[in-house]
Design a protein around this nucleic acid. Structure first.
Length: 836
DNA sequence: CTCTCCCT
């Protein structure tokens, strides 16, 4: 039998589709229901399924995205059933659980369901799961559906899964659900006229919205609902309107999430008799909340949304254009109870360029909690489950890395004992890890209070100083604060049993708020640097505080939250971290590095000891450089890079290198060339080998002196080679006249002997080096050392041009000997004695 | 455009 609505219930568009839906669910375990807002699906569908045969005595679980929506749906169904909430209809949301032995339908939030199925994958006692408002695509709904499909395939083939969505994109979900049939229903709403006002992009949103408000007030009766991206815009517009509208019977009511519940209720309540209301709201008013008497909606066309940056490991806010689906939803708010009007602050032609749907949360969220849950499910990789949009790989990688750092996953991505303990707390992984550690130190209760202040916006005020916020939160008597304290207390209870199981007790110590934050966000421990208010975090990123903030003077901070772009991050939540507390908690992770390096500015080695924590340098000092081979090698490498020839070689050492280079060249065509490469480039190839052992204890380039090179060269040219060197590339040539003349090995044309020609009389063969392989280049000089001739063939010269040379020389130097056959003449260095 | 919303 199909549920028959009581006579008091109005006929709703969904009623006509209910028989078809019931029939499909008889035939198959998976169905998609597409029904626009106003169709009445949330309350009618669960009741209509109560009598289905497949239900047996199992429960129907209905998922709602928000607590408010869950409570409202449960209450309406209870009223229709004519009994009290907690009897046939149950409710389970955070801080509230109402159900009993008679409960057949249980309305839960998506987060509660994810917990339910993770704890009991076979969903014992559950006959069907209904995903309401699935088009909102929250992370928990996507996760819940993936797990439910997996559980159905493996454990519960009889489990009914019904996805209900307001948009017409049901086909994709149906395909994901192994080609589930789609049932469609009509919606119902009053007509809403749309007026496009456009907006100059250079104009501030508040200015454009203020103009639209004045126009609407003049043209239309009734209350107004204005959609703005965030709290800042709402408060600025409220201030502006209150200045301009002082004389009229108009109430301006801000409405956003961080407000106290009572103030939210005032904003939602219908306007008082004879007055008009302007509600300035974020996207909070898009769904779930109906404000009676709203005839006009003004939509600025923007929405602020979080985006997780995997490479930063943090979430920042972006202001985006609203999606077409959300814009239509906003417009629909004007037609809930009567025909209405919607002013849009963009051009009609621009509507087509808006994205069709908002981005599903799974594509832009921090996935650390999701991956931990999946690991508990037994899936080390999200690819093992079915997803409408698979979680993106970079965010998965970041989440996995974080969970491994927190000790929740092992290297194989399997969940650890600690990971299981963390999951017993209803907290994101970082905060769960912090709470567990704090409990081990005896500070669990305090950690839970901090977790509440960090996750419930606005509690304890909005100053960046979390220590102050924690104190104000403890004294605050507002309902939200009291709820928050209850929450912290509940978490502390769960924490104690989780910690007992894990058994990692340490000695009790007092933990400051800063220390607690540091346990959750060790990568955001920060140190002051430069200007007051400038900090560097352990993850290498800069972040700053207003210099006027009292926290700005701290030496160290533990940062919980930053906003803004990478280059200009503002700290919005942090606490001072005492240095000794940091040392106690993180001493084991501080890396002490004793590093000697070459310092180009001073041209020498420097040894520094640094204590580092991530990117933070905690302390630095200079130490005396050790006289080790390793350091000598470093200096030798630096010398090669600096340019070896710019160092203090003696002249003799230079000539030695030239002589060796000459021999190396002379023997180059022979197989086994024993001569080393002593050119600057050749020596630069292995300075650690030939130079380092001979500069032990030297610290600066200008301390490397000729004596070091002497020793180095002696090693490069061992004794037998040195002997050959003297023989085959001597420093001097001894002339027939008996004088030793230095040879020049530096020229490009080979070794050169510059000698007065007279000294060579008696030399019949051309002198050569390298065992006869290389003739000397002779620069023959006059008695006054003027050049006469260059030759590499002395016998040829004697026989050839000597006659002409001799004649000229005789004329110029008549007192010297100029024989006709110099090859046979006696060498001389002197002129003939006067008068002989 | 210097804090969206929600949830265990």
């Amino acid at each position: 039998m199909i549920f028959d609505p009581p006579r008091s219930a109005p006929v709703l568009p969904i009623d006509e589709a209910l028989p078809r839906l019931a029939e499909k669910l008889e035939e198959t375990e998976r169905v998609v229901l597409v029904a626009p807002p106003g169709a009445g699906k949330t309350t009618r569908v669960p009741l209509a399924l109560l009598d289905a045969r497949w239900r047996g005595d199992g429960k129907i679980v209905v998922l709602e995205p928000r607590r408010l929506a869950a409570r409202a749906a449960a209450e309406r169904m209870s009223t229709l059933m004519g009994d009290k909430l907690g009897e046939t209809i149950g409710l389970k949301v955070r801080l509230q659980s109402l159900s009993g032995p008679k409960t057949r339908i249980e309305v839960v939030t998506e987060g509660v369901f994810a917990r339910m199925i993770l704890d009991d994958p076979s969903l014992e006692g559950v006959a069907a799961v209904l995903f309401d408002e699935f088009h909102e695509r929250s992370l928990d709904a996507d996760l819940g559906l993936a797990l439910a499909l997996d559980a159905q395939a493996a454990l519960r083939p009889d489990l009914r899964l019904l996805v209900m969505s307001a948009t017409l994109d049901g086909a994709r979900v149906a395909k994901l659900m192994r080609d589930a049939p789609i049932v469609e229903s009509q919606g119902r709403a009053f007509p809403v006229e749309t007026v496009y006002l456009g907006r100059d992009p250079r104009e501030r949103i508040e200015d454009a919205a203020a103009r639209a408000v004045r126009r609407a007030l003049a043209e239309q009766p009734g209350s107004l609902l204005v959609f703005l991206p965030g709290q800042g815009e709402i408060l600025r517009l409220a201030a502006r309107l209150e200045e301009n509208l002082n004389d009229e019977a108009i109430d301006v009511c801000p409405l956003y999430g961080a407000m106290e519940r009572a103030a939210q209720d005032r904003a939602i309540r219908p306007a008082a008799e004879g007055r008009r209301k302007i509600v300035l709201a974020t996207s909070i008013a898009e769904t779930s909340i109906t404000i009676d008497g709203v005839r006009v909606v003004i939509d600025c066309g923007l929405v602020r949304a979080p985006r997780f940056e995997p490479d930063l490991g943090l979430t920042r806010l972006e202001t985006l254009r609203v999606s077409r689906a959300a814009a239509d939803q906003r417009r629909g708010r004007a037609g809930r109870t009567q025909p209405g009007l919607c002013y849009r602050l963009w051009e009609e032609a621009a509507t087509g360029a808006l994205p069709a749907f908002a981005q599903p949360e799974i594509l832009a969220a921090d996935l650390s909690g999701l991956l931990l849950d999946l690991a508990a499910w037994g899936a080390r990789d999200p690819g093992e489950l079915l997803w409408l949009d698979p979680p993106p790989a970079p965010a998965c990688a970041e989440a996995r890395a974080l969970l491994q750092k927190l000790g929740a996953l092992d290297a194989m991505s399997a969940i650890t004992t600690r990971g299981k303990a963390m999951r017993r707390l209803p907290l994101p992984p970082r905060l769960a890890r912090m709470a567990l550690q704090a409990e081990n130190f005896g500070a669990g209760e305090r950690a839970c209070e901090l977790a509440v202040v960090l996750s419930e916006r606005g509690l304890g005020g909005d100053s960046p100083d979390l220590a102050g916020r924690l104190e104000r939160f403890a004294r605050d008597n507002a309902p939200r604060a009291r709820d928050g304290r209850r929450l912290a207390h509940g978490w502390a209870h769960a924490l104690r049993s989780a910690a007992r199981e894990l058994d990692e007790k340490s000695a009790p110590i007092a933990l400051s708020p800063g220390a607690l934050i540091a346990l959750a966000f060790p990568d955001r421990i920060a140190r002051a640097r430069g200007k007051r208010g400038d900090f560097l975090m352990a993850n290498g990123r800069a972040a700053s505080l207003e210099p006027s903030s009292p926290l700005a003077g701290a030496a160290m901070l533990a940062v919980a939250e930053v906003v803004g772009r990478a280059g200009a991050s503002q700290i919005v939540a942090a606490a001072e971290l005492a240095v000794d507390e940091f040392e106690t908690l993180f001493g084991a992770e501080i890396v002490v590095r004793d590093e000697t390096r070459f310092d180009a500015a001073s041209g020498g080695l420097r040894r520094r000891e640094t204590r580092r924590f991530g990117a933070l340098t905690l302390a630095e000092r200079n130490l005396p450089v050790e006289a080790s081979l390793e350091n000598a090698q470093m200096l030798a490498r630096a010398a090669a890079a600096f340019g070896l020839d710019r160092l203090g070689w003696s002249k003799a050492q230079g000539q030695l290198r030239e002589r060796v280079a000459f021999l190396r060249g002379a023997f180059s065509s022979e197989g086994d060339n024993p001569w080393p490469d002593l050119s600057e480039a050749g020596l630069a190839e292995n300075p650690e080998e030939w130079l380092a052992p001979f500069i032990l204890g030297r610290q600066k380039l200008d301390e490397i002196a000729a004596e070091n090179f002497d020793a180095a060269l002696a090693a490069l040219i061992p004794w037998d080679l040195a002997r050959r060197l003297e023989a085959e590339a001597p420093t001097h040539f001894v002339t027939p006249a008996g004088s030793a003349i230095a040879l020049d090995y530096g020229g490009a044309e080979g070794p050169v002997l510059a000698v007065r020609v007279q000294e060579l009389y008696g030399l019949a063969i051309h002198p050569s080096l390298a065992g006869g392989r290389a003739p000397l280049t002779l620069h023959l000089l006059s008695p006054a050392h003027r050049p006469i001739q260059i030759t590499r063939d002395l016998p040829g010269f004697w026989k050839g041009s000597w006659a002409a040379v001799k004649a000229e020389m005789k004329g110029r130097y008549p007192r010297h000997v100029w024989p006709d056959d110099p090859a046979a003449a006696a060498p001389t260095t002197r002129a003939k004695p006067r008068g002989s």
